[in-house]
Simulated assay, not measured.
Amino acid sequence: MPNDELMPIGAFARRSGLTSSALRFYADSGLLPPAEVDPVSGYRYYNADQVARATVLRRLRELAMPLATVEAVLGSGADEASRLLDEHVAKIVGDAAAVQQKAAVIKSVLGNVPGLPITAVKGPVLADAVEQVLTATAHEPGIPALAGLRIEACHESVTLTATDRYRLSTRTLVPTEPPRQTWAGTVNGDELRAAVADIRRSPLVRLEAVPHGIWFRVAGREDRHCRLLPEEFPDHRLMLASLGEVTTRATVAKDLLLRALEEHPDERLGLCAADHEVNVVSADDEQPGIPLPATATGRALRIWFELTTLYPAVSTAIGPDVMLDLRGPDQPVTIRSADRGDLTTLAMPVKSGHSA
C-alpha cells in the first residue's frame, strides 16, 4: 500500500486544479504519471512534489497548447520554454486576427448590402503611399486609432494620414477618377499592411466602403478587405492648421543625413541649421558634431529629437534631398522631399538634448 506522503487521485486533483479524468489522461499520455499505482486495486497515488508540474501543465493547457508542445515545454530549460511559449502565443494571436478578418468579410456581405464606391487609384502608387504613411503608426494601449491609417476622399484627391503622437505622416494622391463622394474612415493598419502586396500588383485598385470595413477591389486576383477602426482618429487637421510660421528652412542630402543619424552615438540628438550646413550634434558638448553640407535660410536654430522619431521620418522621405521646415525648438518640424512627391511628415522635438 502507498505510504502516508502520497495523495490519492481525488486529493491530488483538488491540489492541482485538474480533474481526476484529466489526471488519468495525462498519466496515460506520459505527461504526468502517478508516483505509485496499487497493483491490486489500480488506485493511483501522487507525490506532493508533483503538484508544481501538474499546475504548470494545467496552465499550459488553458492556453490551448497542444500536448506535444506541452511536453516540450515541461522538458525544457527556462529559456527554451519561454521561446516555445512565445511561439505558441504568437500563433494564437495570428489565428485570432485571421478569424476576425474572415468574420469581417462575412459581415460585409450579410444582408446583401451593396458597397459604396469611393474612387479608383493606381495600385503601385497606393501601395507605396500606404507603406510610407504606415511608418507613423503605433500600437498604443488605450488608443487603438494610432494603429490605423486614415483615408479621406474628397473633391479630386485621396489623402492618407497616420500618427503615433510623435510623428504625423500624410500623403495626398490624385486618383484615376474623381471620388464619387466624400468619405473618411480609419483602416486597420495591420490588415492594410498585409494587403499591400496584392494592391501593388494590381494596375488599378477600386475602393469600396461597406459597413465596418473597406474593400480594395483588385483585378485578376482576390479582393482584399480591411476592417475600419471605430475609435475616433486624432484631430490631425487642427494640428496642421495650427502650425506656426516657418523660421528656418534647410535642404540636405537624404543619404548623408541618414548616415549621420546612424553614426550618432546617442538616442537623443540635436540638429543645428545655420548658413550652409546642418550639424548633427550631441548633448555632450565635448563630442564633435557631424556637419553636413546644406542650403539653410532664416535664423540659426538648434532643435532636439529622439532618434526613433527623426530617423523614420527622414528615411521615408521621397527623393534624394529632404527639406526641413523649422519653427522653433518646441514646434513640430515638417520633413518632406525637396523636389518631388507630396509625402509630408511632422516630427515632434524634445525639450533639450539633456535628460528630461
Rank of each mutant, 00 (worst) to 15 (best):
L18Y: 00
G142V: 14
E36W: 09
L256P: 06
T172S: 02
T186A: 09
S315H: 01
P117N: 04
G319E: 00
H276L: 08
V130T: 10
A194S: 14
L23Q: 06
P234A: 06
E208C: 13
N47G: 15
Q132R: 11
L67G: 15
D266S: 13
A48P: 08
V40P: 10
L126Q: 11
R217C: 12
R59K: 05
E277Y: 08
A209K: 03
I290D: 04
T248P: 03
I151F: 10
P124D: 03
D285K: 02
E152P: 03
A184K: 07
R336D: 01
A145G: 10
V187T: 11
Y45K: 01
E232Q: 03
R268F: 06
L67Q: 13
A64L: 13
A120K: 10
A313Q: 02
P211V: 07
A294N: 10
A11H: 08
H236W: 14
A52D: 14
R340P: 07
A27C: 09
L84S: 13
V187S: 04
R201C: 12
V93Y: 01
G30E: 12
A317Q: 02
V333A: 00
G244P: 06
L271V: 06
V130F: 05
V252K: 00
V252F: 00
E156R: 01
R180H: 12
A90E: 15
R340Q: 09
L240F: 06
D342R: 01
V105A: 07
H354R: 08
E177T: 15
L116P: 11
E156A: 09
A296F: 02
G341R: 01
K122V: 14
D86G: 07
T19C: 00
P66E: 13
G220M: 04
A250G: 05
N279D: 15
V278G: 01
L160A: 07
K351H: 09
R193T: 15
S21P: 14
M239T: 15
E5L: 04
I318Q: 05
E62G: 11
L74A: 05
P33Y: 06
G185L: 10
E131L: 12
R340G: 10
C272L: 14
V125K: 07
A347Q: 03
G319T: 05
D28L: 11
A194R: 14
T295A: 08
R14K: 08
G123F: 02
K122N: 15
A219W: 02
L256N: 06
E222P: 08
A313F: 00
E208L: 09
C272K: 03
R15S: 10
R201I: 09
V174W: 03
R193K: 14
V121W: 01
R227V: 12
E263C: 12
G353F: 01
K351T: 14
H354Y: 00
P179L: 04
T248W: 01
N188A: 11
N47I: 03
E80Y: 02
L346M: 07
L146E: 09
R299W: 04
G298D: 11
A273E: 04
L243G: 06
G115K: 00
L134Y: 02
E80F: 10
